[in-house]
């Protein structure tokens, strides 16, 4: 099967702050229509996400497209109950619709080497 939906529509734990759907292979995904989505491409490599600050707007759907260059990094946003593996060689897509302004930390939660502890970032949701 081409599509692996590892996380269905997800209601975040932080006050229903976000809706998210994670898929691998966006072309085949049952994701929402992409026309209104804000697309953010993120590169993950040891030991940094680029960009490591992702600015989104509350209520506006977004699609995060991750490409990992060197490791099965993780992408975890604890306060939004989002986590996914980022295997190299494919695009991993996270669809989300942040509902509430705020700053949400994310991190790599797959130990990837000596700089693993530094591999983190923030999703900044603005009104």
């Amino acid at each position: 099967m081409d599509l692996q939906i590892s996380k269905g529509w997800k209601i975040g734990t932080a006050c229903l702050a976000i809706l998210a759907l994670v898929s691998i292979g966006a072309a085949h995904s049952a994701a929402p229509k992409t026309g209104k989505e804000r697309v953010v491409k993120v590169v993950a490599k040891r030991f940094i996400y680029t960009p490591n600050e992702i600015i989104l707007k509350a209520g506006v759907p977004a699609r995060l497209e991750f490409t990992s260059l060197d490791f099965v990094h993780g992408f975890k946003v604890p306060d939004l109950d989002i986590r996914v593996d980022l295997p190299p060689g494919k695009v991993t897509t996270v669809h989300l619709t942040p509902q509430k302004a705020g700053v949400y930390d994310f991190l790599c939660d797959n130990f990837c080497g000596v700089g693993h502890e530094e591999m983190s970032g923030k999703i900044i949701v603005k009104d």
Binding site: K76, P78, D79, D105, L107, D109, F111, H116, E117, S120
Partner: peptide, 12 residues
């Protein structure tokens, strides 16, 4: 237990 998940201080 989830001590500080954003610091990876947890077990999945």
């Amino acid at each position: 237990f989830d001590l500080v998940p954003k610091w990876d201080w947890a077990t999945r």
